[in-house]
Design a protein around this nucleic acid. Structure first.
Lengths: 254, 254
DNA sequence: TGCGGAAATATCATATTATGATACGATAGA
DNA sequence: TCTATCGTATCATAATATGATATTTCCGCA
């Protein structure tokens, strides 16, 4: 019944339970049994049992009046466990704090995960959209300055393959979705050592990112700074933000 | 085999999978199959199957060389989903950002979860210990200024019951673990409207918290500020931090 | 380089356990 | 008050998780 594998090493019931957990996202913040069944494609009875189990185990809160399920605090504890397991975060955090204080602007730690960038740590300094102020958001790598900074450190061939095939998605009306343009941007990023994008995730936002390179010169993460185009033109960004950003990225590199 | 319930609405395999996930914490950041079996108390074969399933489903990363499992980025995406599901966070975030900028000090949003306080949002402004810079940490409510601020809004009877029975744990050598002292502290908190603690989570740290009250006057969350005793004495805290903190907590209240 | 121990991986017969159809009960809207 | 919808409970069936064991791979040590 479960597609992934009819393998004996695969526990279908667990996989189905995870499907239930994954049904919750930014546009599905609380779900009834029926809605869960629809989203997960699971049987109504199965959802009933799985959701009940997750509730008993403390993974889902249940509104006693509406009977709807919501993510519990356990979801945050999982993030906490993640943070301890990611060696980059512990290393980067003090330096990111210092950077955000120095710049007075929002600073992020971004990591590549598949074809996406995930914002692992966020230090918001100015009022911004909600999605940009909490960690864990994933966005297509090709569309973001952090993703471009990371990709620019890849060998030419891999870089080209990524630009050709990776996922693209217009987040704002001005998000770049033309792969030829992205090729150019990443070439530029590779030659000057930092990425600079406009209006990609939010309108009027400027993203600037420097890769955190490993010993082999290759990067899987980046330090990212997000500022308003109202207050910052490219010249001032280059002179007043870039040097500190670059220093921080270098300091984090192992 | 699973203690919780031999109920037909309880999916044991899912519960066991969650046991595997919960095996990871700040002191267990990556685990081998054997270690997982030991921690979870599950059969070696069961752990093999469950961990493999979690890996295939993207919940656990597997180091190809050490064969050990680690939390994956999916754990952060779950936090992201949580943030959208918690109405308080969206409401509080812009105000917390404003507060942290105004004070130039670390600001937290804390919620009560069972007998513990969980730090939901953290805006670190100064270099601090790692545990205090990432969200999702849980600490006994009785030991923290945020917990005391929340408890102080409870009816007398519930307050007393909590002080008598809730979990206590010495995080630092100077953490208050005497329940009589805590009674006094919470009484004081209730009468003056804010909580102030010293050396509870970190040595030389002063915690100051204001409850976020609901329409009935009762609170389940608090705004919390953490400063160094080196730089701040109680008088200055009261005059330069407290008013802004109180305003912010009030502004967040529904 | 080769040996030995430990840990990870693969296999398999068994019955435990998840399944999903169905029936019942509660809640909300007409 | 009635009716439709959604959540809850029950049960026979077989699918699926189980855990003992065998095999392979990996790693430290001589």
């Amino acid at each position: 019944m479960t597609q992934p594998k009819q393998n004996t090493l695969f526990v279908g019931a667990l996989a189905k339970g995870l499907r239930v957990l994954r049904a919750f996202d930014e546009s599905h913040t609380e779900l009834s049994l029926g809605a869960l069944a629809e989203i997960t494609g699971l049987d109504k009875s199965a959802v009933q049992r799985l959701a009940n189990t997750l509730h008993v185990e403390g993974m889902l809160d249940k509104d006693p009046v509406t009977r709807r399920y919501r993510p519990s605090h356990a979801w945050l504890r999982m993030a906490y466990a993640y943070y301890w397991s990611d060696p980059l975060v512990a290393h980067a955090m003090p330096k990111l704090i210092e950077l955000s204080q120095r710049l007075g602007e929002t600073v992020n730690l971004a990591e590549l995960t598949g074809q996406h960038i995930i914002y692992v740590a966020r230090l918001p300094c100015t009022r911004t959209v909600f999605a940009a102020s909490v960690p864990g958001r994933t966005v297509p790598a090709l569309c973001t300055s952090a993703g471009q900074a990371v990709l620019a450190t890849f060998p030419k061939a891999e870089r080209a393959a990524a630009i050709d095939h990776w996922h693209l998605e217009a987040v704002t009306p001005r998000t770049t979705t033309d792969r030829a343009t992205i090729t150019q941007q990443i070439d530029t990023t590779a030659s000057r050592g930092y990425a600079l994008t406009h209006d990609q995730m939010i309108l009027n936002e400027v993203g600037i990112a420097c890769a955190i390179r490993g010993p082999d010169g290759r990067a899987w993460s980046a330090v990212h700074c997000s500022v308003s185009a109202h207050h910052w033109d490219d010249v001032r960004i280059r002179s007043e933000i870039l040097p500190w950003l670059q220093d921080t990225a270098n300091a984090i590199s192992p």
